[in-house]
Design a protein around this nucleic acid. Structure first.
Length: 560
DNA sequence: AGGGTTTGCCAC
DNA sequence: AAACGTGGCAAACCCT
């Protein structure tokens, strides 16, 4: 059963069952309890049809309501537009409805960084839907939904795109839940890390002690004041000191034999930590509250952008959740009495390539725990070289050791290599490619006017590397979406309703983190491995390829 | 002063 | 060793 739902902006909303003729529209004064009730009324929960997860779901989650399945009109619209190589066109409900009715298409609403994670007092603030004022919104939802269903059915790979639409929609649910729950983050540990490396927290606008010291020493070394944050000033100073270089990248500085070089490298490292993940970040992105027994619990609340990357990977709006430096991960700790269960899919992309290309030999290697080691045994001699060979195939690397290794890969895994080579040729010729489930690569951009935009052959080759990588990276993103959806489902099946704040709390490309009470640790680990099995079956049916999850369980005493 | 661009590092 | 894909982000830089 599918139920369309829209909010009325006053805490209530309208519900309408879809699919059985024109069923009545029901107004409910309080949306959250109504959704909760419908979710648990039948033997199987409905699939909620709504304008987009960001419009409704965060507030439902705040009200303590979670749903299993939905059809997210905005996310599906983006997928379908992409399928027609119309990436980037507006995909809000209002935009989809306008296209359906031949009306001017409104831009999508703009969201600020972190907006999705700040508790808003608004009661299901209704209208971000960009529908013209006065439009019957529940009818619009029903119309756009019906239209999308038809468009999917008309596609060649309808079955797979339908699956893609379902898991992309589920990803929206997972994103809202994770943003709400947050990743357990100890502000005291974070502060300790910063203080150890940078010195005590400085007044805002000032350099911490260690950075100030380093800047002074660097200036002394050169004999005049300079700002180490300024690449231009550093280049000039090095050149005058007899060490001309064309950039201040760290691997270049490492080769410079001048007393300032090691200081600059250290400065860069610490400066990066301070600016990207320092006290300002901590203050902005980690909220603290009192736990049940009075302890201070911190939570990092990322603002995820589902499908924010063309390949289907997620992006984030502020907070940098997908680039947390290793140095501060010590701050990630389970609450007392709880555990973090982290599962990491190792060597995901080559395994995806093995599965989607149908290359028997590569699939056999991908049946093993360590794919690279197996490749090394079979062809490349040592593991490092095997890894470089694989990554060269995936990324289109052509320099260094790559050439002979690629030749060897081509001999041993012809179908796998042909799969990515074909994708690369399509890209070089200006074409688009599709992932396993039908996500489509954007057409090459022709209007890039920036100075740094490459031209001619270089641009064509770059587009080839992009489509080459797309078919694999997008496949990996799909695997991760299916895993996430399966995991949400499996967790509820095996553990029943979870306590407040328990569940999936973090996701990053090929890694998920669960936070659960200690007594649920084993259950969570089991749910994780069952979710992997289910994911493999859903995506690839019978395949020898395995997707080993490295699972670790940690309590408050140790970090991830 | 403010917006767009570049640089360089972080993650996968 | 350093022309290999996707991104985010902050500070410097550059222009109006």
């Amino acid at each position: 059963m599918r139920i369309a739902v829209v909010a009325d902006g006053e805490g209530g909303g309208w519900l309408r069952e879809l699919g059985s003729g024109s069923s009545p529209v029901r107004h409910v004064p309080a949306l959250a309890p109504a959704v909760h009730e419908a979710e648990h009324a039948g033997p199987e929960p409905p699939r909620w049809v709504w304008s987009g997860w960001e419009d409704l779901y965060p507030e439902l989650v705040r009200a303590g309501v979670r749903v299993l399945r939905c059809h997210d009109l905005a996310l599906v619209e983006a997928l379908l537009l992409g399928y027609e190589a119309r990436h980037g066109e507006p995909c809000s409900l209002g935009a989809a409805w306008a296209r359906l009715h031949g009306l001017p298409v409104p831009d999508d609403p703009v969201r600020g960084a972190g907006e999705g994670t700040h508790a808003q007092p608004a009661l299901f603030e209704a209208d971000r839907s960009t529908l013209p004022p006065g439009t019957d919104r529940i009818t619009a939802v029903a119309e756009v939904h019906e239209d999308q269903q038809k468009r999917i059915t008309a596609l060649d790979g309808a079955e797979r795109v339908r699956l893609l639409a379902a898991v992309e929609s589920a990803a929206g649910l997972a994103a809202a839940e994770m943003s709400h729950d947050g990743l357990p983050w100890r502000p005291d540990v974070h502060d300790q890390v910063l203080t150890e490396l940078l010195g005590p927290r400085p007044q805002s606008g000032h350099r911490p002690r260690e950075l100030a010291d380093l800047a002074a020493r660097i200036s002394r070394t050169f004999g005049h004041d300079l700002n180490p944050d300024s690449p231009a000033q550093v280049l000039r100073a090095l050149s005058r000191a007899g060490h001309p270089v064309d950039s201040t990248r760290s691997w270049i500085l490492e080769q410079v034999n001048h007393p300032a070089a090691p200081l600059l490298l250290r400065y860069k490292e610490l400066s990066r930590l301070h600016s990207a993940c320092g006290w300002t970040w901590l203050h902005t992105w980690v909220r603290t509250r009192k736990g049940p027994s009075g302890q201070l619990l911190g939570r990092f609340h990322p603002d995820y952008v589902v499908g924010g990357v063309v390949s289907g990977r997620w992006a984030t709006r502020g907070g940098g959740a997908l680039q947390i430096p290793k140095a501060v991960r010590r701050a990630v700790r389970a609450d007392p009495g709880w555990v973090l269960v982290r599962a990491d899919a190792g060597q995901l992309e080559p395994r995806i390539l093995a599965a989607v290309s149908g290359d028997r030999a590569l699939a056999e290697a991908a049946a093993e725990e360590d794919l690279y080691a197996t490749l090394a045994e079979h062809v490349a001699g040592d593991r490092e070289r095997a890894k470089i060979g694989v990554l060269s195939a995936l990324y289109g690397q052509t320099s260094g050791d790559a050439v002979p290794l690629l030749a060897m890969m081509r001999r041993s895994y012809p179908r796998a290599l042909e799969y990515v080579d074909a994708a690369a040729r399509t890209g070089e010729n200006g074409g688009t490619v599709r992932s396993w489930l039908g996500r489509t690569s954007p057409a090459p951009r022709t209007w890039d006017t920036t100075v740094s935009a490459p031209d001619g052959d270089r641009r064509r080759r770059a587009q080839g590397r992009f489509t080459r990588n797309f078919v694999v990276q997008a496949g990996a993103a799909e695997w991760a979406m299916v895993l996430l959806a399966s995991l949400r489902q499996r967790l509820v099946e095996v553990a029943g309703p979870l306590p407040e704040g328990a569940g999936v709390v973090f996701f990053m490309h090929d890694e998920v983190v669960l936070h659960v009470p200690r007594e649920l640790a084993d259950t969570a680990v089991r749910a994780m491995s069952e979710a992997e099995i289910r994911t493999r079956k859903i995506l690839f049916g019978q395949t020898p390829v395995r997707f080993p999850l490295a699972t670790t369980v940690t309590d408050e005493r140790s970090h991830l």
